[in-house]
């Protein structure tokens, strides 16, 4: 069986290597993982080999709400430095907002999704450039 961490590691590896689908068979088990088509994730790493990237993933199913609208926080933008576990935005369902947090210290390397963009559990919401 795969637990949540195994799946997250597999998905991260797929994203890092630009693999769109992955199928694993073993015994009576079959696992198929498919990622939505997106920009090739490797380009940033190729341009700046000294940095790595990490995705801030959605903790829930819902629509994106940027930070800084009515929550008393300053908005964030690409290029801003953030700390590990810092709140970057929300995935909201009704009034409940689940926090999208930074997986590591880093710089916001992707655009901020448009408010209302739909995300599933585990979907990457933002990409950070981290310094290993």
């Amino acid at each position: 069986m795969f637990d949540k961490q195994d799946l997250a590691r597999l998905l991260d590896a797929m994203r890092a290597h630009g693999v769109g689908t992955l199928e694993i068979e073993g015994g009576d088990m079959f696992l198929r993982l498919a990622l939505p088509a997106g920009p090739a994730p490797a380009t940033a790493a190729e341009a700046k080999p000294a940095t790595a990237t990490a995705a801030a993933c959605s903790p829930d199913i819902g629509t994106f709400l940027p930070r800084g609208s009515d929550d008393g926080l300053p908005a964030i933008a690409p290029g801003d430095a953030v700390r590990a576990a810092e709140l970057l935005g929300y995935v909201a369902q009704g009034a409940v907002r689940a926090a999208v947090t930074a997986p590591a210290d880093g710089i916001i390397a992707s655009g901020i999704p448009a408010p209302g963009t739909l995300f599933g559990h585990g979907d990457p919401v933002l990409t950070l450039e981290t310094r290993p």
């Binding site: 929550d71 009704g94 009034a95 907002r97 689940a98 926090a99």
Partner: peptide
């Protein structure tokens, strides 16, 4: 392990 916030009335 997920922080939570909420939309409040204005």
């Amino acid at each position: 392990p997920v922080g939570l916030s909420l939309t409040m009335p204005a």
